[in-house]
Write a protein that binds this DNA or RNA. Sequence first.
DNA 1: GTGATGACGGAAA
DNA 2: CTTTCCGCCATCA
Length: 92
Amino acid sequence: MSASTGLILARLRRVPPGFVTTYGDLCPRAPRQAGRALAGAGPDVPWWRVVHSDGSWTQGERQRRLLEAEAVPIRGERVVMRQARIYPEAIY
DNA sequence: GTGATGACGGAAA
DNA sequence: CTTTCCGCCATCA
């Protein structure tokens, strides 16, 4: 049972400013589905809080600016996951 | 039905 | 540190 788009977005909306989650955490065993969900998601979802498991991101400077605006710890081109990663399931 | 693709993940070299 | 490769699964041509 893969997570539905609705569940994926519901989890993402639980991620508070200053923290990030990953595609894999939003949708275990089918992380690409999380990406697809975001691509078609509305403006109400904080898509910039979703990064790769290694802390890198795919939406370039735009995403970087939004993350920095929330004081997400960044080192080079990667989010410092040790500090910013939060697990949706743990706050669900 | 088959094969390619993707806002991925993780292990291996 | 970088590149390569394979697994994963919903979509789509």
